[in-house]
Design a protein around this nucleic acid. Structure first.
Lengths: 137, 137
DNA sequence: GTAAATTTGCAACAATGATGCGAAAATTTA
DNA sequence: TAAATTTTCGCATCATTGTTGCAAATTTAC
């Protein structure tokens, strides 16, 4: 049983062609993927709806997470820690390169706490940093 | 000359019905607005395209700014400081209430700096906090 | 008040995402 | 391992969101 199958089974998902291929894509890519990226890379293999539903199932199981971006395009990313241990990932910072527009999970950088005005109760914080990544410098 | 006209003229925008009405909406609301909110509140007054273009022109002039949200819906907000002084607003934190889903600019809370891994050069950082706002508590 | 510049509304289009449903595939069961 | 059951897939269809071109209307500048 390969890594992809393992991940799917562990998360109680049927092992199907689309899920295997898309999961493999995430494992191969070192950044986040947008729906469009996935559709491009899988070619004509799967229906557009299948890709949506596959991503949805991954999100529901907590295998991948969404990354909010400034231009409001949805990006999905697999966190290394997640797939290996299955535990819930902490709140890490995301980095988006303005040059190559690669989106990277900075798993080691946690979102700092901020002091909110009186009355506000925080529950979850997201932080996205834009700039130039190591490869584009 | 009223406040709305003043803002528009200062930003070299023609004073038109849609711009006046939409700008007024922003001045009246104490939170951020989504395109859909605006369309709802302006009723049948304007074409959908006009609303888009009006918002675009405001963004271009720096009168309003975009707020990235976790569910990837675009929200626009007017910062008090901006409209009065015209200077560029600093990087403040945004708060989205999970209860009433109001989106608020925390003008006094600046986005903290984070230490990035080697090679990454930050240029801009966004931070969005979800939770419960003062009114919903 | 008129000419020039800008903005509007309409039509049309593109991209993104959701849903219902029968067919196909995967999993369970015996 | 074959049948029964469950899940997923693909197609058609639809909704929402956002963009563009262009002629008509409005605003601004002179």
């Amino acid at each position: 049983m390969n890594q992809v199958e393992e991940i799917l089974k562990k998360n109680h998902l049927s092992v199907t062609g689309s899920r295997q291929k898309i999961m493999q894509l995430f494992l191969n890519s070192n950044g986040a993927l947008a729906h469009a990226d996935i559709e491009k890379k899988t070619g004509e293999s799967f229906d557009r709806v299948t890709v949506y539903r596959t991503l949805q199932s991954f999100v529901e199981k907590g295998i991948i997470h969404l990354i909010p971006t400034r231009d409001n395009s949805i990006k999905y990313a697999l966190c290394k820690d997640d797939c290996e241990a299955g535990h819930h990932h902490d709140n890490h910072v995301h980095f988006i390169c303005d040059e190559c527009s690669k989106t990277i999970c900075l798993d080691d950088v946690t979102v700092p706490q901020v002091k909110l005005p009186k009355g506000f109760t925080p529950q979850h914080a997201e932080m996205v940093v834009n700039g130039i990544c190591g490869e584009c410098k």
